[in-house]
């Protein structure tokens, strides 16, 4: 599953912009992950601070 380390996240929304399934949402100061997430990992690469991780 996709995890968001909220202590690292700077809530910039870059991950939301690249998500192909529209599964992410930036709610002011945190990222919400919806069940539409396919765990493709694209968002993890764009994250400037490395807050996202697809865990087995």
């Amino acid at each position: 599953m996709l995890t968001v380390n909220r202590y690292k996240c700077c809530y910039c929304g870059a991950c939301v912009g690249v998500c192909p399934t529209c599964a992410l949402e930036l709610v002011e100061t945190f990222i919400e992950v919806s069940p539409d997430c396919k765990e493709c990992g694209i968002c993890t690469k764009i994250c400037p601070v490395g807050a996202l991780e697809v865990k087995a």
């Binding site: 870059a14 690249v18 764009i46």
Partner: peptide
């Protein structure tokens, strides 16, 4: 939706 090649981080 942006492709990785079309987004600067």
């Amino acid at each position: 939706a942006l492709k990785l090649k079309d987004m600067e981080t």
